[in-house]
Design a protein around this nucleic acid. Structure first.
Lengths: 142, 142
DNA sequence: GTAATTGCAAATACTTTGCCACGTA
DNA sequence: TACGTGGCAAAGTATTTGCAATTAC
């Protein structure tokens, strides 16, 4: 078995989730999608569409988010976006306001120092951030 | 008249909006709220609730967003948040994931350099960013 | 065996639009 | 006068929940 998938399932088990078919298929699909994806997008995806109900995906995403395995993002669309939290995954995005294309920002995140400063000054726990750049991509500008 | 309000109305007029009662009341309410606020929040606010319909506020916010006078934010809630774009206003937020309180981050924004780098490397136009910190506030942690 | 999980369907919540009356330029 | 704007109500879209059947542990 894919090690990444195995690790994820371990994390889920530790968080108290049962190892179900739906969970596995959802994790595989999330691993395949490096970019954040909506609930509707997941539900339409090849593997999931035939395997489980949208409500199941919804509830799994909710549990995975609570467990710190998945992150929920705003991204300005009406629908919420979801992505796995993985150490090697970039977490900043560049989004075209015209066509909605999501790109990954390939640069070290510049807000770590500020984040630490906020943590010590305000006493907030479990601090993390969300950073997105918005603009018109060259294709849409043409 | 309040200069800030006058300036805003000028910007609206330049953008082609008509000077209506609803527009003025909305601008005043947005000026009063330094933190981003939802459409529902605006509609419930003292001035607006008696003066105009929710659909009107919705359409005005849309026009103001197109005109670059208001910014629409994701912020993880189901509802969208809106805030005026003003030079003296902080644009980064610290949000409690438990109680939803929005605080303003009082620090110079650390992503300007990266934003410029992205602009020149990708060719995106009208580039701007959205940065939020999420965590559990001390009150909710207790 | 017990409790978590799932599917289906219904209910919510928030957003968006149509249409005609109205007010601004 | 002409056209953007406003109010009301209805439709649209995404999220969330109830409940009985099922499955993992």
């Amino acid at each position: 078995m894919n090690t990444e998938l195995g690790d994820l399932i371990d994390r889920c088990r530790t968080a108290g989730l049962r190892r179900t078919k739906a969970l596995e298929v959802l994790l595989v699909t999330l691993l395949e999608n490096e970019r954040p994806i909506t609930l509707a997008g997941l539900a339409e995806s090849h593997l999931l569409s035939s395997q489980c109900d949208k409500a199941t995906i919804y509830r799994l995403l909710h549990r995975l988010t609570d467990a710190g395995i998945v992150r929920r993002l705003g991204l300005h669309e009406r629908a919420a976006y979801f992505t796995l939290i993985l150490p090697e995954r970039r977490c900043d995005y560049l989004i075209c306001t015209e066509c909605g294309t999501i790109s990954l920002v390939d640069a070290p995140c510049p807000v770590h120092d500020l984040q630490n400063e906020i943590r010590s000054k305000t006493g907030y726990l479990n601090l993390y951030h969300e950073l997105e750049f918005f603009g018109t991509c060259p294709k849409c500008a043409a």
